[in-house]
Design a protein around this nucleic acid. Structure first.
Lengths: 402, 402
DNA sequence: TTGTTTTTTTCATCCAGCGAATAAATAGAG
DNA sequence: CTCTATTTATTCGCTGGATGAAAAAAACAA
């Protein structure tokens, strides 16, 4: 899955297909209205997409048919023959899978408990490949055309290499090519926070204009930054490792090896670990606490446990400091707090607001609107699937051209 | 001075003029080689620029003339009739001025000691206008066609408003329009670190590719961030306020009102203030220490004074933390440390390196090359003049078109 | 049937850039 | 002094991509 510089036509094509995935089947005029394109251009683009078999005309009689005068709209939708894509998220000891058709509709999902940390590179790729194959086998295997995989850490999207990850034990792992070989399908990999940020901005048009910084709190803490709806890419076309910015010099231990990282205060594993200690319970055996376990911690805090309240107060403060850094560095239009960690946003909010206020210049702070988007991990697989679908579209176009 | 979205032709035109300003007079073939443009395109663009009177053919006999076979090169240069631009930097109690001709050559400079902090908005603009007028009067007044002004703080370049500044007392100051009215000339304003970053990247081609983060240490600490040689613009098309990111919760007092900001450790005023205290000398009367005063502090540290060495050690550590945050957030190709503060880079370096290493992931850190560019404040006025010149070019083009 | 309305296609045009041919301006060779 | 080689600059025609306007298509309504 390569992606060099895009020609103007490829950009337009991508915008059109993105729009259809977001909005569902649309008539040509409607596409034009959504994207501010002339009917002539839409007609031209859709003609080649129909010709290539990527889109088909929806012949199904519309509900509005017979009510409106004039030539009826012909809605365009993705061809069923395009097949589907599997989206995967790899956590510390969990794999989440999702099967999505080319139109972006969810078909099936599954999650598998499996520790990944202590595996050698080859073992790891074998396990992932087997899990994906089994999932595909149970769900219309031969329709699967590509795989998108999101994982924590510093991911080189272009070369398909995981340069570093707190979850996987190895470094500079050529995960995309390794999996691609085993599965016989193209594999796209992406940082997990970037994938979630992409999915969230695809859902809300406001977030696709201007600069949007998405802080994902969950298994870890990640940042996805988008400018005009496109993911910001760094030097190795990866995202950031914002969760491992050190905010407190002698703070709690982080699994990256450092101390006082943002995620060492906010990630599920950190909150759960500290909550266990407060209650004099044994250290957790599983490194990712279950949703139930986390809900129990939150409930205990909500019931007024002072030590736990303090834990969330501190976490909120760190989140506020983090948002403040983003505001003063990137001057974004939108800050989105997302991920499973938003389940405790009511507990984080007071100290979050206070910290944000105490460390940012009002003129800058007031520019950025803060959005809290409650979102679980399956919106993340949705994001990585969307990106894999875009790459597939592009590859198809280039294949035809050659 | 407006700047909406640029047409492709305007972009090409800008690239060509930028190139001529950087490199001096060039023949058409040479421009083509520098920019990777076809001779046909260069010919076309230069034809309109010659037609508009922005460029002129250099008729002066070349030194290489008579030595090389073939049709001789005709170098193109900026028309002398285009006039000049005044670049201004406003510090706490100092104004730096510079007169530059349209080709980007320095013609005159001056600096004026004048406290600006406690002035009302109108007074402030009067003082600035008078200073600029006096400077222009002494240096070929009627050739001055525009003014570029760089100041610290959060500057809205598009609307010409200083939203907030630690130097100027007022908020949401419509500085560009106010000065423009008083001077009868277009005025462009820009954040000072952005202006310096722009000038520095204009000087080094390597810094114009990829993502470059320039940390300017001087009167304050600022960040200019560039992607592919163009300044990153935030929500109000300003830059960042990175110097006021709080890195130490109970750190030293910053003039923004907060504590522990990056600049409260690194800025000249901060180092000087603390050095005075260490030596049991009275607090400084001037809020910007002179270059001599700063050199004295640095010399005393270099001579081995342990308290002063510790001051610089701490400052270096904060600088390393700051660079680390940039690396983990933006994943830049280049980090540039610039500004007068680089005078003490030898003292900052050990703790800078250690802090950077301790807080960044090696895979990410190794992507970014660290450049130290010794640079005083006059490169800054150069930067803001360059930007004003670009805007002038654009306005000229649009004037002709209408 | 004929008009009305709305969607879609077609056509001619424009902009921007480029390859190739051509013209221009020089130095050197005979 | 003429001719050729060499390098620079211009011109011409083509292409890719977007668009406005006109035309065609496909329905409903009278």
């Amino acid at each position: 899955m390569s992606s060099l510089a895009l020609t103007p036509r490829e950009t337009a094509r991508r915008r059109l297909l993105d729009c259809l995935r977001r909005e569902g089947p649309l008539a040509r005029v409607e596409i034009g209205q959504h994207l501010g394109m002339s009917p002539a251009s839409v007609s031209d683009l859709t003609a080649s997409l129909l010709d290539e078999g990527i889109l088909v005309s929806d012949e199904t009689g519309d509900a509005t048919q017979g009510l409106i005068r004039g030539r009826p709209k012909v809605r365009l939708s993705f061809a069923a023959t395009l097949g589907s894509v599997v989206g995967v998220w790899t956590g510390f000891n969990r794999i989440e899978l999702r099967l999505v058709d080319s139109a972006g509709r969810n078909r099936a999902s599954r999650h598998v408990e499996r520790p990944l940390r202590n595996l050698e590179a080859d073992e790891l790729m074998d396990v992932l490949a087997d899990t994906i194959t089994a999932f595909a086998r149970d769900n219309d295997a031969n329709s699967v055309k590509a795989v998108g995989l999101a994982c924590q850490g510093y991911v080189d999207t272009r070369d398909g290499v995981v340069a570093w990850s707190p979850v996987l034990g190895t470094r500079d792992l050529p995960l995309a090519s390794g999996l691609s070989q085993r599965l016989g399908k193209p594999v796209l990999i992406e940082n997990d926070a970037s994938a979630m940020a992409f999915a969230i901005t695809q859902r809300d048009p406001a977030l696709r204009s201007g600069r949007t910084a998405c802080l994902m709190i969950g298994d870890g803490v990640g940042l996805g930054f988008l400018v005009q709806g496109e993911l910001y890419r760094g030097a190795r076309s990866g995202g950031s490792e914002f969760g491992h910015v050190r905010l407190r010099r002698s703070g709690p231990q982080c699994r990256c090896g450092g101390r006082g990282c943002i995620e060492a205060f906010l990630a599920d594993y950190a909150l759960h670990r500290d909550a266990q200690l407060i209650d004099h319970r044994p250290a957790p055996t599983l490194l990712i606490p279950s949703e139930d376990a986390m809900n129990a911690v939150v409930a205990q805090a909500r019931s007024g446990d002072p030590a736990l309240l303090n834990l969330f107060r501190e976490a909120g403060e760190v989140l506020g400091d983090a948002a403040g850094i983003l505001i003063q560095t990137l001057e974004p239009d939108h800050i989105v707090i997302c991920g499973p960690g938003t389940r405790a946003m009511d507990l984080l909010r007071p100290s979050f607001d206070a910290a944000l206020e105490s460390q940012t210049i009002p003129e800058l702070r007031s520019l950025a609107t803060i959005h809290v988007v409650e979102s679980s991990m399956d919106i993340l697989t949705e994001g990585v699937v969307m990106q894999a679908l875009r790459e597939m579209d592009l590859d198809l176009a280039r294949l035809k051209a050659a």
